[in-house]
Design a protein around this nucleic acid. Structure first.
Length: 420
DNA sequence: TCTGGGGTCCTAGGACCC
DNA sequence: TCTGGGGTCCTAGGACCC
């Protein structure tokens, strides 16, 4: 048996944790740049606020119904997510963290336990120790566990945990799930399936495998197996080291000058290099991209990227910033309104495996020590305290984040104060 | 005025090798 | 005159996920 643990309206739950006045009120959390809705409380859903809705399009709804609006605060959500995942590890040995708010847990080696009561206990523990409500679906495959989770969310009588065991439970799930709502079926395949008279999960489960193989590749075939209770999606509980690190952002306002864009890119390059060091890796390819806003039909469009190779793989911020700015020199063009830029670090190798070069004059050990101190200071006293000159102090590129809550759990200057 | 960012997996096709 | 077949690696693009 496999359990899927899913935090309910996760970002909203995080905001509520430190602000109980939000309980039972409509709350939404916005994407980076405050552009669209990425999380909604049940009350906000009931008002008809859709996932992904553009903020300016729901402004009236928000004003009329006193909807509480927050910018996203990934530092807070990430920290609370880690705490939830740590709790899972105490209950099971095989845990696959699938996303910031979801994890699969393998229960096969717990045959002697009553898995349902174990999962109820887990749910209560998370609520008690962290304060985040979760819903748990338990079924023979990941896909069915996802489905069971949806059912548990929809039907309050399950009290947050739904165990799908017998064949008739599975059939009930399949008959009451539309193809478009199956995990792994997106808009394209949904369209294709409906055109071919397959509209429920039950119909998909008995579809012609040859046809599925031809039109939906092996992923489709695996999905069919999963619906028939045959586990076919591999476990990834030991994620491989990352192949690339990418920091790409839209700017708060449109930028045109090379100077403004270079500040943004220097900051992205620094952020990416910090993540690189955290992973214990080095990069030898710095990819830089720059683009205009495709939504602005009145603007000339421009989209370009370039890859700068480094002679010796590094995680040193200044080398990576320098490479990114060199890339910008190649792709920057005057006379455009730029909306977004990014830095990708590729060809990652573990720090210990870096291939030296005869022509390398850098003192690698010294450079690494310098970066360690750099990271330590910024970690202890707040991000951005020490910075490279190229990063500048301008805020033009910064994304909009007007309604961000404090980092209650990760910044000593922002912990909640209790007066008694 | 205003529409996220960061991923994975799969397939097809080209380059290259023996 | 005659011009293989099988393998690997890489990349681009599509579909999907949260």
């Amino acid at each position: 048996m496999i359990a899927l643990i899913d935090c309910n309206n996760f970002y909203v739950s995080c905001e509520r944790l430190f602000n109980p006045a939000l309980d039972n009120k409509p709350v939404v959390v916005l994407s980076n740049n405050d552009g669209s809705v990425i999380a909604r409380s049940n009350e906000a859903k009931a008002l008809g606020i859709e996932m992904g809705a553009a903020v300016f399009m729901i402004a009236d709804l928000v004003a009329k119904n006193n909807v509480y609006v927050f910018s996203s605060n990934y530092t807070l959500y990430g920290d609370l997510s880690n705490r939830v995942m740590d709790t899972l590890q105490r209950f099971a040995s095989v845990v696959e963290v699938y996303s910031i708010d979801e994890a699969f847990v393998d229960l096969t080696d717990m045959r002697h336990h009553n898995v349902e009561s174990l999962m109820r206990q887990l749910r209560e523990t998370i609520m008690q120790e962290i304060g985040i409500p979760v819903t748990i679906g338990i079924a023979p495959t990941k896909t069915l566990a996802k489905m069971a989770n949806r059912f548990a969310k929809r039907d309050k009588t399950f009290n947050g945990v739904y165990l799908v065991k017998a064949t008739e439970h599975i059939n009930h799930l399949l008959e009451n799930t539309l193809v478009g709502d199956i995990w792994g079926i997106g808009s394209q395949h949904k369209k294709l399936l409906i055109q071919n008279k397959i509209s429920s999960a039950a119909q998909l489960a008995v579809a012609n495998t040859e046809w599925i193989r031809k039109n939906m590749s092996v992923t489709g075939q695996r999905l069919l197996n999963e619906l028939s209770a045959i586990p076919s999606i591999a476990w990834d509980d030991m994620p491989a080291p990352k192949k690339g690190i990418c920091i790409a952002r839209s700017f708060g306002t449109l930028l045109t000058t090379r100077k403004d864009i270079s500040e943004a890119l220097a900051n992205f390059a620094e952020m990416a290099s910090a993540r690189l060091r955290q992973e214990g890796s080095c990069t030898s390819l710095v990819h830089v991209l720059l683009q205009t806003n495709a939504h602005r039909l009145q603007d000339k469009q421009y989209f370009r990227s370039v890859t700068i190779p480094l002679q010796v793989a590094t995680s040193n911020a200044s080398e990576i910033i320098r490479a990114a700015l060199k890339g910008l020199d190649i792709i920057y063009k005057k006379g455009y309104n730029f909306k977004k830029a990014g830095v990708m670090l590729l060809n990652l190798v573990p720090e210990g495996n870096v291939q030296g070069s005869m022509f390398d004059k850098t003192d690698r050990l010294r450079s690494r020590k310098l970066m360690n101190s750099f990271d330590m200071v910024n970690h202890r006293f707040g991000k951005g305290l020490i910075r490279y000159a190229a990063q500048g102090f301008g805020k033009k590129w910064k994304l909009k984040s007007e309604k961000v809550s404090p980092c209650y759990t990760t910044d000593i200057r922002q912990v909640p104060v209790v007066v008694c």
